[in-house]
């Protein structure tokens, strides 16, 4: 009987590891362990053995049974793993295929900068004001203390409408409109579209964009102007740059200044962008002229204020390295797509 068991064992251990699939394995299980298997019938015959033989053969049979069972379960695991592996290989993606394109557009660079400027000033406690682009001479010139003889009033400088009004040449008229309507403290910026009768070229456009800043309160000084402007340019262009003020003339500010910032390209060393001066011209500034305050019935002894105006197009061009202002308004997608 021992030999029979040995042969059976041998056979099982040979056949099980080479079976090819789960179906074959199941038939092998029935063959070796099923009710009609040799092993079952041998187990049934134990009763007929001698008392001494019984436990020995019994042990051997049980051990063999366990061995075959283990063998089957091992093979089963191996086969399952194999199937799974095959499935994975079959379902494997070529991850180099392109993803489904989700189209994304872009804000116009001018408005990107416009929004950024607004956000900086909002964080500095300013409100955003606005005024009309079509203005009267009063708001654009007279109220801003512009002398009758000032060349800005010429047809060659300003667009006039057939109805006698004009297209504002700067955002400064918003100052007057705000001060007429509200009492100090005033702390606004007014971004907007402006017009000058210029033939378009690389640095001139008949339509351009500016923002005006105006602060009026008790105790506002030239030092506040310098600090505010410096805080702004550092937030916009980074901490490496700073501003400087050069005396200048504007009808509605006294003292007036032109603002330069240290060239953001060369940090003042001199380059093509700053024409080797180390400085970039940014706009005009100054303390609000007492005449202007009187014009809006503010007590010019009690209140003082500062104003400045900077070009949004100019800032956009500096920020993105754009050398020709006309590109901004051409709306060529090959240009616009760079601002995604």
């Amino acid at each position: 009987m021992k030999e029979e068991i040995q042969t059976l064992r041998q056979k099982a251990l040979e056949e099980i590891p080479i079976c090819k699939n789960l179906k074959e394995l199941e038939s092998l299980r029935i063959k070796f362990l099923g009710r009609k298997s040799k092993l079952s019938s041998l187990l049934g015959q134990i009763g007929q053995l001698s008392k001494e033989q019984r436990p020995i053969i019994g042990d051997l049979l049980n051990q063999t049974k366990r061995e075959i069972e283990n063998q089957i379960s091992e093979r089963k695991d191996a086969l399952l793993l194999e199937t799974q592996k095959k499935k994975i290989v079959k379902q494997e993606l070529d991850i180099s295929f392109p993803g489904r394109p989700i189209e994304i557009g872009a804000k116009h660079p001018l408005f990107k900068i416009w929004e950024e400027i607004e956000d900086i000033f909002i964080s500095l406690g300013f409100e955003i004001a606005e005024g009309p682009e079509i203005e009267t001479e009063y708001y654009n010139f007279d109220a801003l203390n512009t002398p009758e003889w000032h060349p800005a009033r010429n047809l060659s400088d300003t667009f006039y409408l057939k109805n006698g009004m004009l297209l504002r040449t700067e955002t400064s008229p918003v100052q007057i409109r705000v001060m007429e309507k509200y009492k100090p403290p005033i702390r606004i910026i007014a971004p907007g579209r402006c017009y000058r009768n210029d033939k378009p070229d690389a640095s001139h456009s008949p339509v351009f964009h500016q923002f005006e800043a105006l602060v009026v309160d008790v105790g506002i000084t030239f030092a506040d102007l310098k600090g505010t402007l410096d805080s702004f340019v550092k937030r916009l262009f980074g901490d490496k740059t700073h501003s400087r003020f050069r005396p200048h003339f504007f009808p509605f500010t006294e003292p007036s200044a032109e603002i330069d910032i240290l060239c953001i390209n060369c940090n003042g060393k001199g380059c093509k962008l700053c024409k080797n001066t180390g400085w970039l011209e940014m706009g005009g500034a100054g303390m609000v002229d007492p005449e202007v305050l009187k014009q809006v019935n503010y007590d010019s002894e009690k209140y003082t204020g500062f104003a400045f105006g900077l070009g949004i197009d100019r800032i956009t061009m500096l920020r993105y390295g754009i050398h020709d202002i006309r590109i901004l308004f051409k709306n060529d997608l090959r240009f616009l797509q760079q601002f995604v």
Partner: peptide, 21 residues
């Protein structure tokens, strides 16, 4: 205005800016 601008940009639109004339 900002909501409209951002929304259209996110839907794949490019913003243009033309002169007023």
């Amino acid at each position: 205005i900002r909501k409209i601008r951002s929304h259209l940009v996110n839907l794949g639109f490019f913003e243009v800016c033309n002169l007023s004339f």
